[in-house]
Design a protein around this nucleic acid. Structure first.
Lengths: 232, 232
DNA sequence: ACTGATTTAAATCTATGGATTGATAAAAAT
DNA sequence: ATTTTTATCAATCCATAGATTTAAATCAGT
C-alpha cells in the first residue's frame, strides 16, 4: 500500500557533524519528513541536491570553506523546486537580507528553540516564506536603510522634472542605447530635431554627453518602473 | 503637574471622513496617544506634518486625488522623525513593497481588527517596523520575485566575465560618465590606449558605443556593489 | 625558452556626437 | 490678445568617438 502524498525529503548541509546529527534526529522524531541525506561539505551538498532533488535543503551559512550564500545561489541556479531554509549562528541583518535576496525561503538561528525550527520547516514546505518575527524586524530595517539614500538623496531637486514630455521620450530612447538616427527613426522626426531635443536635455540635466544623461536618468528614478541601486 | 514623558501625537490622513472619525475615537479610547490632527486631504496633511511634527502619521494610501505613496515620500523627504503607518484597503504586494521601500514603518489593512491597528501603532511608535504576518509573507514573496530575474537571468553567460582587469577599470570609469580624456588622465595612460581598451570592451560586450556598454554593465551587475533593477 | 594574453601606444581615417544659430508653427499660459 | 513654451527643422562647424592596423614590452604558463 502506497502513500499518495509523498513525504517531503530534506537535505541537511552543515559543517558541524554534531549539529547535523542533532537536527537529523529532531526531524526524525518530531516530524514525518524523510532525511534525503546529510553532509558537512557544501559542494557535496550541491551535488546531492542535483541527485535527489529534495523538497527542502537546510543549510548552515556559517561554513568556513565554501561560502554558504554562494552554495545557496548555486542551488537556486539549478532551477529545481527545492526550497532553502537557512540556518545561521548570527542574526546579521546583512546576511539575512542577502540570503533572502538570492532566494532562501526561511532563516532561523541556531540558538532558537527546536520548535521554532520545526515550525519554519513546515511553513517553508507549505510554500510560505518564513522569517521569525525578531529577524523579520531586522530585515525590514535593513531593507529600508538600503533604499533610504536614494529616496532621501532626492532632497536635491530632480532635474528630470524639467523635461518636457517629448524630451522624456527622447531620453527614454537614449537610455535604451539608441543613437540619433535610431531615435529619429523611432519618433518619425528628423535627426536634427533629435539633436535639438538631446541638447536641451543636456542643458536641463547639466551634463555634457549622452552617457552622462543616461546615467543621470538611471540614477534618478527615470522610467518610474523604479530601477534601483542597493549599495550594501 | 506635568508629565515628563510626552505623549505621542498622531496625525490622521484619510479621505474618508467617517473612517477618520472612527480611527480617531479608537485611538482616543483604546490608547493614551494624542491626536495631533485629522484631515481628508493629503496636501493639507503634509503641511500639518510640517507644522506639528507628530511622532506618527497614519495615512490611507487609497486616495483618489493625491497618490498616497507620493504623500508618504514627501513626508519622508522632510527628514523629520515622523514615522508613517500605512492604512490600505488592499493587500496588494506591490503596494506594500513600494510603501515600505519609501520608508513606511508599518502597513495594516482596513479590514483588520482594530486591536491589530492598535498593536501596529504601538510597535511603530516603539521604533519597530511592523507588518502583520500575512502581509509580511506577501512582502517576502514579492521581494524575492523582484530579485529573481537578475539572479536566474545569469544563466546566459555574462559577457562581463571576458573583460580583463584593465578593461574592467576602464569600463568602471565609463560608467561614471568619463570621456576618453578623463579616463586617460585617471589611469595615467594615453588617450589612444584608452581607445584601444574601449574598443576591445565593445567587441567583448557586443555593443556599438559607450552608452550601450555602460547600459550593459549596469544591467549585468557590474561594480559588484550590487546594483539592482527591480522591475515591478 | 617559447607561446599567448595583456597592456601599452601611435597613426590614420571616418562617422557620430554635440554646440550654435536661426527660424517656423502650434499650443498653452497669461 | 499676446507672450511663452514646445516641437519641429536646417545649416554650419568643431570635437569627440570609434574602427583599423601595427607594434612594442611585460608577464604567465607549458
Amino acid at each position: 500500500m502506497r502513500e499518495f502524498k509523498k513525504k517531503a525529503r530534506i537535505l541537511l548541509i552543515d559543517d558541524n557533524a554534531d549539529h547535523l546529527r542533532g537536527i537529523k534526529e529532531l526531524i526524525s522524531i518530531e516530524t514525518g519528513y524523510d532525511i534525503a541525506g546529510t553532509t558537512t561539505n557544501a559542494n557535496i551538498g550541491i551535488n546531492l541536491v542535483k541527485k535527489y532533488r529534495p523538497e527542502l535543503v537546510i543549510i548552515d551559512v556559517n561554513m568556513p570553506e565554501k561560502d554558504g550564500l554562494q552554495a545557496i545561489q548555486e542551488i537556486e541556479k539549478l532551477g529545481l523546486d527545492t526550497r532553502i531554509l537557512v540556518l545561521s549562528g548570527y542574526d546579521d541583518a546583512d546576511l539575512i537580507f542577502r540570503a533572502m535576496k538570492i532566494g532562501a525561503k526561511g532563516y532561523v538561528l541556531k540558538t532558537m528553540a527546536s520548535a521554532q525550527l520545526i515550525y519554519a520547516i513546515d511553513e517553508v514546505l507549505s510554500g510560505k516564506v518564513y522569517l521569525p518575527s525578531a529577524l523579520s524586524s531586522r530585515f525590514f530595517e535593513y531593507f529600508q536603510r538600503s533604499f533610504k539614500e536614494e529616496n532621501s538623496a532626492s532632497t536635491e531637486e530632480n532635474l528630470l522634472t524639467y523635461l518636457t514630455s517629448r524630451e522624456e521620450e527622447v531620453l527614454e530612447l537614449l537610455t535604451q542605447g539608441n543613437n540619433y538616427k535610431g531615435i529619429a527613426g523611432k519618433l518619425f522626426i528628423s535627426e536634427t530635431t533629435v539633436k535639438t531635443h538631446v541638447n536641451n536635455i543636456f542643458q536641463k540635466l547639466q551634463v555634457n554627453d549622452r552617457t552622462q544623461a543616461v546615467l543621470y536618468a538611471l540614477n534618478n528614478g527615470f522610467g518610474k518602473k523604479f530601477r534601483t541601486k542597493i549599495s550594501a
